[in-house]
């Protein structure tokens, strides 16, 4: 029961902080002070209190987009184990539902973008669905590999399964999985090198351009949903990459939170030292990630 409460509290309150840490890291690299760590929270509160501007072309789909996206993401949060603790909602086969919930949220984000009739948003939507489509096989190869290692179809089991001992035994495939998962994490959350969340040119954006017309509370919901998605995929990554467990539940929670912060710093570092890839290069990197994860499966079969 305590774990479920902590799970919900961490999952609901913690995600925006990741964005704050990433921002602070990038600022440090650029030699700036940067916005406070809690800036994303301030932004959210400010947005929820603002009015909204609606384009005359939009319909109910535009308003429903962020709402459905957020609710699908919130359910995905309930399916994912955090740290060494099983998820509040876990059953055999939940990994498939997990992947398809992201599909549902993607469907609604992109049709909300198309509802504005803007070329820019159409462009962003096209890129979003295309690149995500290439990420899907990677996610499934990764899940099958982990499922085979842990002999389970339940996310809570397969993501808690990796331990330092497993890393020693099957280091090569774990390393490949971590690589593939990191690329998935960056691509799905539209971070550099796939997309630059801070760019100022609509033509080059992916995620930001899809939400150009959303304002006020709707934009707040979108920002929060994006943070939540980063948190979810980050938790998957941390579970596989840093499988540290002490046996004490509270210490494990602390380890998890620290690991997530470290991941945010790592993303900030990547964003500071790399440039965004040219759009034509992105599919190549994504297919490369798929092949990495397929290799991981091959090594496990051996």
């Amino acid at each position: 029961m305590t774990d479920i409460i902590i799970h919900c509290a961490v999952a609901l309150l913690f995600p925006p902080l990741l964005l704050g840490i990433i921002g602070k890291t990038k600022a440090a690299f650029a030699g700036r002070v940067g916005a406070p760590y809690l800036q994303p929270y301030y932004d959210l509160i400010k947005l929820f209190r603002k009015g909204s501007v609606f384009s005359e072309t939009t319909t109910w789909v535009f308003r429903a987009g962020p709402v459905v996206t957020l609710s699908a993401t919130l359910i995905a949060v309930l399916l994912i184990p955090l740290g060494r603790h099983a998820a509040p909602l876990s059953f055999s086969g939940d990994m498939i539902l997990f992947a398809y919930l992201f599909g549902l949220s993607r469907f609604f984000t992109t049709i909300a973008a198309l509802d504005t009739g803007s070329s820019f948003e159409g462009m962003g939507a096209a890129r979003e669905v295309t690149f995500s489509c290439l990420v899907e096989p990677t996610l499934f190869f990764t899940l099958i590999t982990l499922a085979r290692m842990s002999k389970s179809l339940t996310l809570s089991t397969i993501l808690i399964y990796p331990t330092p001992a497993i890393w020693l035994a099957a280091g090569a495939s774990m390393l490949l999985l971590v690589g593939a998962l990191f690329i998935t994490l960056l691509a799905e959350n539209c971070r550099i090198p796939f997309d630059d969340p801070n760019t100022h040119l609509e033509l080059t954006m992916i995620h930001e351009v899809m939400v150009l017309d959303h304002s006020g509370p709707a934009f707040g919901i979108i920002l929060y949903g994006a943070a939540l998605k980063l948190f979810i995929l980050g938790a998957v990554f941390v579970n596989v990459a840093l499988p540290l467990a002490t046996g004490n539940p509270l210490v494990d929670w602390a380890i998890f939170v620290v690991a997530m912060m470290a991941l945010a710093v790592a993303i900030g570092v990547v964003e500071s030292v790399m440039a965004r890839l040219r759009l034509v290069r992105i599919p190549q990197l994504l297919v490369g990630a798929t092949i990495l994860s397929a290799f991981a499966l091959l090594l496990v079969l051996r």
Binding site: G51, V53, F54, S55, E56, T116, G117, F120, L212, D213
Partner: peptide, 12 residues
């Protein structure tokens, strides 16, 4: 409870 002005779609 908030203001909802109508406008055209953002086109730079």
């Amino acid at each position: 409870g908030s203001s909802q002005p109508r406008s055209t779609t953002w086109g730079c």
